[in-house]
Amino acid sequence: MSNMITVHDLRKSFGSLEVLKGIDAEVKESEVVCVIGPSGSGKSTFLRCLNLLEEITSGSVEIDGEQLTDPSTDINKLRTKVGMVFQHFNLFPHMTVLDNITLGPIKVKELTKEEAEKEALPLLDKVGLSDKADVYPESLSGGQKQRVAIARALAMNPAVMLFDEPTSALDPELVGDVLEVMKSLAKEGMTMVVVTHEMGFAKEVGDRVIFMDEGVIMEEGNPIQLFDNPQNPRTQSFLSKIL
């Protein structure tokens, strides 16, 4: 299968602080890659470079055959191919759930309101929130908000979905519903990069786990191997702390 994401020698600095120190990574079509690592190791920054929420200092990122840093790339168009789900949901509080989901399709893909809503309703159904179309985000639980955020990202028909600790702001009893939705996405063949410490999810759904530390990929491999039999001492020490 072809590569959906190809990252070569990606570097990112904030001022004099180099946060990503040369990342090489590939994600194949329909692959689910989980990224783990200590706080401050650059996981979020790496993810944010994949849709240019952070400017890339050097190196190259190719998504679905398009170079992100190529000046001729239409970055707004490319971003519609890369869905992103944030730790803190970032739903638009002044819009109903349905409007949150249809805003992108209407303004970016230029669908009519009716067309956009017709596409949005099955997505809401998919995340189990058909009855919430007309409510405002403030009345939803964290888990429901995150599922709306997933539906909002899916409404753009992305080729890749990025998740940055999608369940870590949730009460434990709400985590399951969100993971279920992510699992079903994976089953449908969505290409996913997921920063998460949900070991169970990584083992069950992940095709590969990447362990990042201090801005580099220290180790990567099959989830079961990496979690149960880590090779790198840094990985071993990290896993012993979080397990």
Binding site: N51, L53, N76, K77, R79, T80, V82, G83, M84, F86, N90, L91, F92, L103, G104, K107, V108, A149, R152, A153, A155, M156
Partner: peptide
């Protein structure tokens, strides 16, 4: 960021 991520200018 959420706005930019769904492709809005």
């Amino acid at each position: 960021e959420a706005g930019r991520t769904i492709g809005l200018t």
